[in-house]
Nucleic acid binder design. Structure first.
Lengths: 328, 328
DNA sequence: CTGAAAGCGCTTACAG
DNA sequence: CTGAAAGCGCTTACAG
């Protein structure tokens, strides 16, 4: 790769002149300009942005890193979409990173070298050590979708969401209730289930709660998981006469809807997340205010970016989910 | 923001020593190390990555920009996902950019300053001028989802896809056929419709083709568009006895499926794109090989990145869509 | 174990 | 209109 000296030499001018040409050619004689331009084209020269920024004293990248566990997950995509819309409005960019099975600390070390303006971790448990790593670098960051005592975080109360689901099923008069979740028992799921059970037991101590778990393989087609959810729904309904179903997430609930279409009796189905397609399915579900979450995250980071104060008290914002009643 | 000189001065050492401490502290006396570290913490110092990279002579960003028209579009999200999976395997990162209504040339100018390793444009028409802008900067790039004579491109043949849809509907014996598209008549849609009509006319000259167009507002819930598609399907079926429907994309076809559920007679429904949910819906559709497209795009750019040769002949790769027969 | 100096590739007063 | 020089913030031989 040629640099500005190569161009200057070949064009028989100083690097200052090359720089001027690069800037558009103000205060450069036409002939000189043309000559330099010609050499630039010949050598396929493109100025080095790193050096340029350094000289400009413009160190900002204007891009935020958004780190998600899994890039294929629809709900994460929805959150990212919300964040992106806000970032763009403020003229910031998006660097998207999916962690998968990589070690969080390694990823952080890696991201720290990417010269990003800030980091938004979605549903990623950051240890105190990892947070300190970030605090030390003085980079604005926050965690979404789960509370974290060692940094700013914004999350939607899963316990409350579970309770909301229970309340709905009870209000509709369903007697035999099931929870259908995933075998990888995430923190979110535990919270939702706990809120669900607590509410049920409190308001109807005699209620029986069935639990079933589906093994989710992210590399596999949705259809398969939904098919499994459908079968489990049918089985539970036929074997135990269960009529109220709370699904850990909307994708699974779609399976419930399919089961319903095969049944004569109306069963209660409630999902979680309110995915874009759920309104089309007329699925009753728990909505997470991800627009608010995205907006608040962006607002926080932008604020931190401009104040650059290292604070030792962190804000944990708890948001409330809402019940969206539709046709199930 | 303090720099390395501030630290050196306050710690009473040279910047070389500070640099060594930053690197981990090899060949530094323990006391010196501790002293420097203390100052670093006190001043919340974080080294400047731009300068560091410059000094390292490490100019690569290892991140590719992926530019899409609209970040909310599910099909684009699917393509991005495929590209991402490949990039990560090769240890490259993703910078995601949604153009929306901004001017392409402006965006290119802007992206050029972001020090990216390469650019992948998805379904974005790049003028010769825009391509030259990129070629001049010697940055590897390609266009996906539409052919482009001025740069490398990879696309799936929409004309062929339309023909495939026609063939399917005809093979199933449907007589009265409709195409349901979007009012913004994109290049893709024109191609699909043309392939569709040409095949129909050729193989069954007497066939009548109805066309209906739905006004899509991207800021609005899917459900609304699907609802509209449902109503149109019902209307066409009832008024004109239409029994074979080709939808411009799967989202619209979902509306057709809903219509089917209200009808006694079986109608033919075929979509386009094979979205993740389509297998769950049992939707017959046209699949675009986006895995291949993503892989090929990544392969091309990585190759260009390593050879860095300015070539003047470009490759346009045409991929074939495939018919996925399910239950509609 | 430590520091002075050169260098990474660029920009921008300053002087002419 | 043009060039020599200083500077952006860092790293790394080199010498001691």
């Amino acid at each position: 790769m040629p640099n500005i000296y190569d161009i200057a030499k070949k064009a028989g001018v100083s690097i200052a002149t090359v720089s001027r040409v690069l800037k558009g050619g103000a205060n450069v004689k036409k002939e000189t300009y043309d000559k330099v331009m010609q050499v630039i084209e010949e050598l396929h020269y493109a100025p080095n942005n790193l050096a340029r920024k350094l000289a400009f004293k413009d160190f900002s990248s204007s891009t935020f890193g958004v780190i998600i566990p899994d890039i294929a997950h629809i709900f994460y995509q929805e959150i990212v979409r919300n964040i992106y819309n806000i970032l763009r409005k403020k003229n910031y960019n998006l660097f998207l990173f999916g962690i998968y099975f990589e070690e969080t600390e390694k990823i952080i070390q890696y991201l720290l070298k990417e010269n990003l303006s800030g980091l938004i971790f979605i549903n990623i448990p950051l240890s105190e050590m990892n947070c300190n790593l970030l605090h030390k670098q003085n980079i604005p960051f926050c965690v979404l979708e789960r509370p974290n005592p060692f940094c700013n975080s914004i999350y939607v109360d899963n316990y409350q969401g579970g309770a909301l689901a229970a309340q709905y099923l009870l209000s509709k008069g369903y007697k035999k209730i099931a929870f259908i979740g995933e075998t990888q028992n995430t923190w979110q799921q535990q919270q939702r289930l706990k809120g669900f059970k607590d509410f049920l037991c409190q308001h109807n101590p005699s209620v029986q709660i069935y639990e079933e778990y589906i093994d989710i393989n992210p590399s596999i087609d949705y259809a398969l998981h939904e098919e499994t959810a459908k079968k489990i729904t049918l089985k539970l309904h036929e074997q135990y006469n269960i009529d109220g179903f709370f699904f850990y997430c909307d994708e699974l609930a779609y399976g419930g809807i399919k089961a319903q279409s095969l049944l004569k009796k109306k069963i209660g189905i409630i999902g979680y997340d309110d995915l874009p397609f759920s309104s089309f399915f007329n699925l009753t579900t728990i909505h997470q205010p991800i627009e608010t979450m995205g907006a608040e995250a962006a607002r926080q980071l932008l604020h931190l970016l401009h104040t650059k104060k290292g604070s030792h008290s962190y804000i944990n914002i708890r948001l409330s989910p809402t019940l969206i009643i539709r046709n199930t």
